[in-house]
Design a protein around this nucleic acid. Structure first.
Lengths: 344, 344
DNA sequence: GATAAGAACGAAAGCGCTTTCGATGCTGAG
DNA sequence: CTCAGCATCGAAAGCGCTTTCGTTCTTATC
């Protein structure tokens, strides 16, 4: 490995001067700078990030963690889309992303410990779970943190406008003539799940619609199976809803399977609408109407928020919410008035 | 930040002894070790990875890069599944994953330079492109490398048995009575694309089937659009095939869209079969019959291969190919003999 | 009681870099 | 000619850790 000393020896200058030339200090003449840079080029010198970090306390590294209940990690379509966008936004600044393992010296450590050990400049966590102690610890620590998909008054967070998303969904269903609208909810320990549920309840009330207790059923951890089971439950009701708003596309997909398995059709018999707009949504049958989360923007906003904290050396308690859009595909249909066919 | 010196002062021992206690050296009595460990616990000491790496030359970090033509990065369903599996396999050993940015001191650098700068212990690259210079550079370098989805005699590589996969697909189609089978190929600069194409050609010959030139059409970079265009082309032929084997699920999906747009049905009018078995495959309509790549195993094998190199301090030129499976769903159908209806 | 062997500890160098502060030489102003 | 001021450069300390090589002290051996 060629070090700063080697190129000092080669050029006849001191390591100090070499270091300064490399870091664009003003007190080195252009002639010697030229000579040093030439030698650097010729000898194939590369700085050592660890040595540099050791003295500067800046690692140009951002830690990232996923906290999700499915256990799919990087395969999570929403999470990886957000992180990909985040990555693009920070890489141009020179930051690398570190996916941590929580093992130091063969001992299990917390994320906070791991990141302190690694000396990251900041960390981005994608976390929907409300009360993860490790994430809490991170947010309370001194290291700059931004968490995505979680809400907090005291920390830097960014998430979609879940409430508004629910509203748009319900409003759309209502405009289609639906009155009996059910909700397959995300897990209650999850901020997004809770918020979408709140949005549903509120907008239903705003529309003046009834919400029977049985119409709000838990889909568990945003899994397909959860959606399937929840829909089964809905179908077994004496008065099933005509439309279902689910808290996630995966839930919607599960629900649609249940509907098909029961011999019904979407959207003819039931309208369903999802949340997320994962890639899958447009390819299933029928293509899913859903509330789209803007992963690009979420990634960008979180990058901004984190970088701002890193640069200012202080935590910023700011909550940015990014707007969502309803994307209309074919899983919802206007309700034909039952009154005409079935006079009461 | 509490350092080794602080806990030395606290306990009255030298930093040497503290360091030894921390690293389980045998020449420290159990009593002093106990005392030191207690102080460590009490003072909340954490080692500094950069300082440690600086002296040991071991960073417990593995660099990862994606080289893919779509520009989707972490969103690539095959790549992220492989990397997720890889991560699980190395994290228990204490390795962290570093997604590099190629920016050092505000200057654009190559991956090799970036990784040397970062002092990673090894790098895993997921790369389908044949002749990427940066990947070549990496493979030729002294740093342990494993590359996934690429073939090479001189390096550590792991990939699916693309050839056998094609064979299974063609064989299946043939068993269904299809004789006119076309291939929508992946890009030729891609190892997987090339190999699947080879497998197609060879197995067709083995089955004694004809391959008109027009039956092998390029799907470009494994994109849906590529599949769409290629299928359009196939449909415009005077004698279109009855079945299409595509080099990727994305291509198959595009092809199926083209088929539908032309007013035909899958699998009634055309059988199509994909490659990969991405999550989407089971949810599209009809569910796609496809050749499944075992992402779990690929990740595991690459982890093994890389770790072996890291531990042995030398490059290993080994090529492991992991088996694929045909998963049969609903996009293929037995061909009804045309002879009966259309006597020649 | 003298000696060898082992157990427990520490001094110091070194990993590759940055940064402070001082030294040196040169210029032009007076 | 003198001196202030500027432009260049370098010595040295320090970042936090590991590791080699001694040193000291205890214990067992004859």
């Amino acid at each position: 490995m060629v070090t700063i000393y080697d190129i000092a020896k080669e050029t006849g200058y001191s390591v100090t001067t070499v270091s300064k030339a490399l870091n664009n200090y003003s007190d080195v003449s252009s002639k010697t700078k030229r000579a040093i840079l030439d030698a650097v080029e010729e000898m194939g010198y590369l700085p050592n990030s660890h040595a540099r970090t050791l003295t500067t306390k800046k690692s140009w590294t951002i830690g990232v963690i996923f906290i999700e209940s499915l256990g799919v990690g990087m395969k999570h379509p929403f999470f990886n889309a957000v992180i990909e966008s985040f990555r693009k936004n920070v890489e141009v600044l020179g930051y690398d992303l570190l996916f941590a393992s929580r093992m130091i010296n063969n001992q299990q450590k917390s994320y906070l410990e791991q990141f302190k050990y690694r000396g990251v400049d900041g960390v981005v966590v994608v976390c929907s779970l409300f009360d993860d102690v490790q994430v809490k610890e991170l947010m309370d620590s001194s290291i700059p943190t931004v968490v995505i998909d979680l809400h907090s008054k005291e920390s830097a967070v960014v998430n979609s406008d879940n409430f508004a998303g629910s509203y748009k969904a319900v409003e759309y269903l209502y405009s289609l003539g639906h009155q009996s609208i059910a909700h397959i909810a995300g897990h209650a320990t999850t901020f997004a799940g809770q918020e979408r549920r709140n949005g549903f309840m509120t907008s239903m009330k705003t529309m003046g619609l009834d919400i029977p207790d049985e119409y709000v059923v838990n889909g568990d951890y945003f899994s397909r199976e959860g959606g399937y089971k929840a829909m089964k439950q809905l179908l077994s009701l004496p008065n099933p809803p005509t439309a279902i708003f689910t808290a996630a596309d995966s839930l919607a997909i599960g629900a649609m399977e249940a509907i098909k398995d029961a011999g019904y059709q979407v959207p003819d018999d039931f309208s369903v609408i999802g949340f997320d707009d994962i890639e899958l949504a447009q390819f299933i049958n029928p293509p899913l109407t859903t509330v789209r989360q803007d992963t690009e923007l979420i990634g960008e906003e979180s990058a901004d928020l984190l970088i701002k904290q890193i640069n200012s050396q202080q935590k910023i308690a700011q909550s940015v919410v990014v707007p969502v859009d309803l994307v209309i595909r074919d899983s919802c249909k206007a309700l034909v008035k039952e009154e005409s066919s079935k006079p009461s």
